[in-house]
Amino acid sequence: MEEDGALLGAIARGSKAAFQSFYERHAGRLLGYVLRVTRDRSLAEDVVQEVFTAIWQKASSYQAEQGTPLAWMYRIARNKLVDRWRRGPPGVAWASEAERPVLALVQADPELSMSLERALEGLSPEQRQAVELAVLGGYTHEEAATELSVPLGTLKSRIRMALRHMRALLTE
């Protein structure tokens, strides 16, 4: 992790070599994540390209307080995916629920994230639904609240509790 932070520092100073090292360390797992969400290799490669371009441009903004370099990269990737979904044609519903990334995660192969699975299993069913839709699924909080038929405040409270619980489990 320290090495990733140092690489981001060098990228911020314009080092192509550091950029390539960061790419070689993480492109495979980033592509794995985006592919699971999009299920479209060509689209996934485009998103990976967008994410690394953003890393090149934004490396100087990385702050260790905001989490690990991987958490930072995850946030960039998640935002790129969410922006693509939101830019979709207005009024057109998802072709099927299978296009929702949460299902991609649920149906992902069993190798995926033992620790994450463990953390999700530790949640109450309500918290798990809230996390799957609003954190992993790309739903807005309003959409997720509607989907789950709960008030918006209740949904946010469940997400907050779930994230605290997950963090505690993941850092045990």
Binding site: Q20, E24, Q49, Q66, G67, R75, E111, L112, S115
Partner: peptide
């Protein structure tokens, strides 16, 4: 924010790596 997004970093760390196509870095660069 770091506390709230920690699970995302853990998720990324745990995702199995996908073979990266040759030439992708050149495209990205």
């Amino acid at each position: 924010v770091g506390r709230l997004t920690a699970p995302g970093g853990t998720l990324l760390e745990a995702v199995p790596e996908e073979p990266v196509p040759a030439g992708l870095f050149e495209r990205i660069w």
